[in-house]
Design a protein around this nucleic acid. Structure first.
Length: 370
DNA sequence: TCGATTTGACCTTT
DNA sequence: AAAGGTCAAATCGA
């Protein structure tokens, strides 16, 4: 164990101890100044530790730091577990022998999109981006082919975002959507993406002879679906039509989810300390903040689909700090549909709720949707 | 006519 | 070598 590791462990240990102290000062009787001080100390410890682990840049720019703590946090609070499938990781480009993680150029994460039958929404829901299908492949051991999509603006704007859509064998109503890379494009015309959704469904395997026939049928279904959906467009029902699960994604994406794990600096006055307090902090700092105006006022969207956004440049899933891609601006953030849109937080959830009405226990009890 | 999808061929990775 | 991933010509359809 070299000096660097010792210092690292020391920093993390210090952070842990400070967190314990902070926990003891969560009583309403404790002063805010004390808590703020402890928070600053904790942040400092984590930032030092992370910067030591980074090869280049700060913690937020890290793309190779293994963050088991973040993983554990995610698993604990959101049911997101580290991606077990590490295929596709680039093991070649390690920048430091003591850094336990391999570098990967593109962030990757998977969502499981469940589509309930009878809703008229039979395919993976639109995620707010324009995708162009560039391939389809039968996958060994899978009943359904995998569809390959890239961002429509790949050539126009050099956006390298891609996604793969794989229908689940166990539950055909579930689509596993693996996203790779962040969008670097500015998709101002997100309104026009509705028609993309139904086409993102890889069809079931079939003989060549049937393909043309199927294609015609599919197109008809598409039309019927659009009619159906246009009737339902105003019936936004957040949670009953489709469920979104961010299954388990890639360790390499953790830095996107948790670019720089840190405790929120919000002063919190709650009786229940511990997890609920933490979740409430997240709510105050991010979750509610991630409800875009569009989200609150779905009527502004012309999409007939429930947006299922993987991230929309803010790969925080409502947790941690957002990482904005350089090109993203406030307008885009605001106009972007959000992953929480599909949260089955309850069918009658009123999104006009203000922060103060948001029950922390409520969210905690419903985090399964992650 | 143009943009999107299909699909066999080709390339890459393991 | 096999499987996954991408390319690009052919095709579709608005």
């Amino acid at each position: 164990m070299d000096m660097e590791q010792m210092v690292l462990i020391s920093e993390l240990t210090q952070g842990k101890e400070l967190a314990k102290q902070l926990r003891n000062h969560l009583k309403p009787s404790s002063s805010k100044e004390t808590r703020d001080f402890l928070i600053q100390q904790i942040l400092g410890s984590y930032e030092k530790a992370l910067s030591m682990l980074n090869c280049v840049g700060g913690a937020a720019s890290s793309s190779m730091v293994d963050e088991p703590a973040a993983d554990q946090f995610i698993s604990t609070f959101t049911n997101i577990s580290p991606r077990s499938d590490t295929s596709g990781l680039d093991y070649k480009d390690q920048c430091h022998k003591h850094v336990y993680k391999k570098r990967k150029t593109m962030p990757q994460w998977t969502e499981q999109v469940k589509v309930c039958s009878g809703t008229g929404l039979e395919g993976p829901l639109d995620d707010g981006y324009c995708w162009r299908k560039y391939g389809q492949k039968d996958i060994l051991g899978a009943n359904f082919p995998r569809g390959y999509y890239r961002c429509t603006h790949r050539h126009a704007q050099g956006c390298l975002a891609t996604k793969q859509v794989q229908r689940s064998d166990e539950d055909p109503s579930i689509f596993e959507v693996t996203y790779r890379g962040r969008h670097t494009c500015s998709q101002n015309s997100q309104l026009a993406v509705a028609a993309m959704a139904s086409s993102s469904v890889p069809p079931p395997p079939m003989s060549k002879e049937k393909r043309n026939q199927h294609y015609l049928i599919k197109q008809q279904e598409h039309e019927d679906q659009n009619k159906k959906q246009s009737q339902e467009v105003m019936m936004f029902n957040f949670g009953s039509a489709a469920g979104l699960k961010v299954k388990a994604e890639n360790l390499d994406n953790r830095e996107d989810i948790f670019p720089s794990f840190s405790f929120p600096q919000t002063s919190i006055e709650v009786d229940n300390v511990g997890e609920n307090m933490f979740i409430e902090s997240l709510i105050e700092n991010n979750f509610m903040g991630s409800f875009s105006p569009k989200f609150i006022s779905p009527a502004t969207s012309e999409s007939n689909y429930f947006p299922v956004s993987p991230s929309h440049n803010t790969h925080n899933f409502g947790l941690g700090h957002s990482v904005q891609t350089p090109e993203s601006d406030l307008t885009e953030i605001i106009s972007a549909p959000n992953s929480v849109t599909n949260s089955p937080i309850g069918e009658d959830f009123d999104f006009s709720l203000v922060k103060v009405d948001f029950d922390p226990n409520f969210l905690f009890d419903n985090l399964e949707f992650f």
